[in-house]
Design a protein around this nucleic acid. Structure first.
Lengths: 212, 212, 212, 212
DNA sequence: GATGAATGAGGGTTCATTCAT
DNA sequence: CATGAATGAACCCTCATTCAT
């Protein structure tokens, strides 16, 4: 799945991505120039191109890394408890945390990734990102199945569908609450956290099983 | 609804926005240059600046127009029927239609609009867009209230919260289904439409009243 | 000497030049656009070109007007008194006043006007400005002659030369004192006025006659 | 004298400033575009921006260089002789030469430089230019003092004042004679040189001492 | 005469990218 | 491997000016 001689992330690549990360966060991806990254990472501009094919690849790597973090977050979330609802809420927290740490990639992941790998040109990193996404989906599938077995979750639930349903609704909720935090605070008498908490609760009810 | 110029939307502005619209759609906003727009609209680059202060204003006008369309869609949706569920589903359809017609603005509206008008610099178009958004929210508030009165919708629902909940979840769902249409088709045996239909249904259940 | 149908400055032309004047003063000539002038004068941009061939002509007219003012100032200065020194100092004051009122043209008059009318392309206004300049020089010539006759001014003075000498030195002094007013205040303990006063005095001594 | 880059004046900067110089001279600063400079210097437009932050800096460097030349000229002038009058005339010659070689900067130096460094934004080059100007003033101060000690120059002369007096009058004279050379030739029967020579002589008399 | 409409011809500046060394 | 040096290709925007009406 790898390509570039994978020195375990060549130290150099790490320094560069670290610098890029910081700058992307501070000024946005579009507003960060390769010069900026060169300056901050301590390499020359040309050297950046030794380690990365182009700016796109650099971004791709960062997205991939963030996706791997998300995988870790969700994995941890599932290990936190055995209670289905508890675990569900931990997953939500993981997503919130991801959005807070990587606001830029959160959107990208929802937007462009997971494209048709037959028809579209794509970076190897994108494919890998997709694969990590798949692994996350598997994690979620297992979680749902276990919940169903316990009777905590509706038995008639279509697992794949539910996963997508949650991806969509949860990310939509989180994104909105992030972008309109002020507005939410003013209109309702709710903090972002409380608003999300309630939203998460409502969504949970859509899959909740009979025996609850 | 206010226009700066006397001319009832000076034809020219229309031609220009139409060209811009098309190009934004095809290549994205960032990748569309004023030269592109000039070429496609049949005007010279300089003429563009006669009718629009700058690229930003052009975009702002387009977003505003789309928002007004969305308002119309939702208004129509509510007039379609008296049945609460029916009306809800029509609203969802309106959103889907909006996303299909204005995929670019759909994201923008969720992202950046509704900013703090005290602290941030903003275009008059942005403020107007916000105002139209408010009008949409009022429409939705009335809809929910009526549903509650009929007993179709839970009496304990916090209206403002519910509106935001739906903005977030519905748009998240629609966006996801748009971006990953292929993937959805492959993974599940579902068309985008069916997937959305089910999703809309699940979300409706979160607010459904006792007497149903 | 005139060309353009001389309605005695067509009212319209006056309004336009007045607007231009004000803007040139406030923002500099280069930074004032024809649009600015149109807006401020209440005419359309195209109308400006009905009354003036181009921006250059507009400037030319303004310079000419200023030159005519300077003529008036100097004429008045000479009528103030019969004492040669007194009159000299009044001329100096006239120049200072001119520089203060028309700082832009002061420089232009010294720079570019009075060109070779055989070899160079020139505006009719430029020629007229030149002619006013000549009239000023005649005024000064008479002044010097009268001073010489009274014995207040050296008898061996070459009149034309002296006039040029004073144009150069006085304008140099005035310009410098205008541009470096702050610096002068700090370095010496002198106001601009006092510095100029002393300078004018020193220059006067270069032409002063025996019987003083 | 300080250089930002390590390269001992990177050859490239020299080529670029040389091209700019030539073009500024021929067409004026405003009418010279970065494209012009690129073409003439043999670099691409983008390369210009590698070596200079922007057009302003390019100009600043040129002005600074010219100022340094002027310093050299005046220094040499003072070393030419021990006779006060002789030295004075050499200084005048230095100024004339400077004006002939750098007519553009001659004006700029008199116009805008020496600004308040507290209140105004300025380029490092501008500050340096100012500093060279100060060094020139010191040279002149020493010259005047020596002349006073010898009794060649009036003992009651205020040195700072005199320096400014000469800056103003000499530069005014030189500028006028440069701009109206033809006119001078026609009106009087004098070459520019002779006119200046006489003018310099007259000005010298304003400071000449008792024992002459 | 007055102008609304339109524009040609640039302007300075930026940036991802390349390549010889 | 690392980079200094160089650039092509745009980009957004401005302005004096023209011309049909």
């Amino acid at each position: 799945m790898a390509r570039r001689k994978k020195q375990p992330q060549s130290e150099h690549r790490k320094k560069i991505t670290a610098a890029a990360e910081q700058l992307f966060m501070a000024k946005g991806i579009e507003n960060t120039t390769m010069s900026d990254i060169a300056r901050m990472s301590g390499y020359s501009k040309a050297t950046l191109y030794v380690y990365f094919k182009d700016k796109e690849e650099l971004i791709g790597v960062l997205v991939l890394e963030s996706m791997q973090k998300l995988y870790d977050y969700i994995k941890s979330a599932l290990e936190c408890s055995n209670d289905t609802k508890q675990r569900y809420l931990e997953i939500c927290k993981a997503l919130v945390r991801y959005q807070e740490e990587y606001p830029l990639y959160f959107k990208m992941v929802l937007d462009t990734i997971n494209i048709d790998f037959e028809t579209t040109r794509f970076l190897p990193e994108e494919k890998e990102t997709f694969l990590v996404g798949e692994k996350i989906n598997e994690l979620l599938a297992v979680f749902l199945k276990e919940g169903m077995e316990k009777g905590d979750i509706r038995a008639d639930l279509q697992i794949h569908q539910a996963i997508f349903f949650f991806w969509g609704t949860l990310s939509g909720l989180i994104l909105l609450s992030a972008n309109k935090e002020n507005y939410i605070g003013q209109e309702m008498k709710l903090s972002r956290e409380d608003f999300l908490q309630q939203g998460f609760g409502m969504l949970y009810r859509t899959i909740v099983g009979e025996n609850v």
